[in-house]
């Protein structure tokens, strides 16, 4: 589904990703871990098409398409979803109106008819249950005045509505208490299928107790320096990142 080959990226002239290789197949859950500043969020941003990042080299193919050639909106329409680490507050735009526009633009791109208000609302009701989000939250302006947990829940709700094939969760656990974490993780798990894949970007192993990864990759200094299974995440939780850094630095 997703094939990243030797991806290099920089922001404001500073090289951050220094050659990432990663293959993600349908049905898989990949965790990207690593210390602060290792490039985890940059990777998520580059995949979603954030324009302030420059791609300096490498390739990313998504279901056979050159992902890097696509605009952010076309990536979303092709099935890539980024759950933001810091969801943006947008006063004046209600979550419902925003999502209706988004869902229908995605449908139009895929050659499907626009949903009318009734069918949109019925899908919305169904997905709301999934992520345990309240109607009152959705009629408010997008994320405005939402708590950290509400924002993250709204991200997962949007993900449910857009039904992506590849979901990238960027530090979705940050700022969440354990109850909110459980609700968010449950939502993600319920959305999982054999056809879609998830990349979980996180600093801590905590989230991975709930969203169990098939593969764990450790990003350090712009490269994946170690890959393994969920046991690797346990080991990181126990021992911290220093041994990874030492290992990586000694190789160089």
């Amino acid at each position: 589904m997703l094939n990243i080959t030797n991806l290099k990226a920089s922001v404001e002239g500073k090289e951050i990703l220094k050659g990432i290789n990663l293959e993600v197949k349908p049905g898989e859950v990949h965790a990207i871990m690593g210390p602060n500043g290792s490039g985890k969020s940059t990777l998520a941003s580059v995949l979603a098409g954030r324009e302030e990042y420059n791609v300096d080299g490498g390739e990313v193919s998504f279901n056979g398409d050159d992902l890097l050639e696509l605009s952010p909106e076309d990536r979303a329409r092709e099935g890539v979803f980024l759950a933001f680490q810091y969801p943006i507050e947008i006063p004046g735009v209600s979550t419902t109106n925003f999502l209706k526009t988004a869902v229908n633009q995605v449908r139009e791109y895929r050659g499907l008819e626009a949903l009318d208000a009734v069918s949109f609302l019925s899908i919305m009701k169904e997905k709301m249950k999934l992520v345990e989000i309240d109607q009152s939250l959705l009629s408010r302006p997008l994320n405005e005045g939402f708590s950290g947990g509400e924002k993250k829940r709204n991200e997962i709700f949007q993900m449910a509505m857009l039904a992506p094939t590849l979901a990238i969760l960027d530090e979705t656990d940050s700022g969440l208490d354990i109850d909110a974490l459980r609700i968010v993780a449950n939502g993600v798990n319920k959305l999982k299928s054999e056809k879609n894949a998830t990349i979980v970007v996180t600093h801590y192993q905590r989230l991975l107790d709930y969203i169990v990864p098939d593969f764990v990759h450790v990003l350090y200094n712009g490269k994946i320096v170690k890959s393994g299974t969920k046991e690797l995440a346990m080991e990181l939780e126990e021992k911290g990142y220093d041994w990874i850094k030492e290992e990586a630095n000694s190789v160089v």
Partner: peptide, 29 residues
């Protein structure tokens, strides 16, 4: 607001439409 623009685009809304939504929202405030 480029961040807000990107957020809307990352949900599949094209740039012009996203821009229109944001300017409209800014005004009707």
């Amino acid at each position: 607001d480029e961040e807000a623009l990107f957020y809307l685009r990352a949900r599949g809304i094209d740039k012009d439409k996203a821009r229109a939504m944001l300017l409209y929202a800014f005004s009707i405030d």
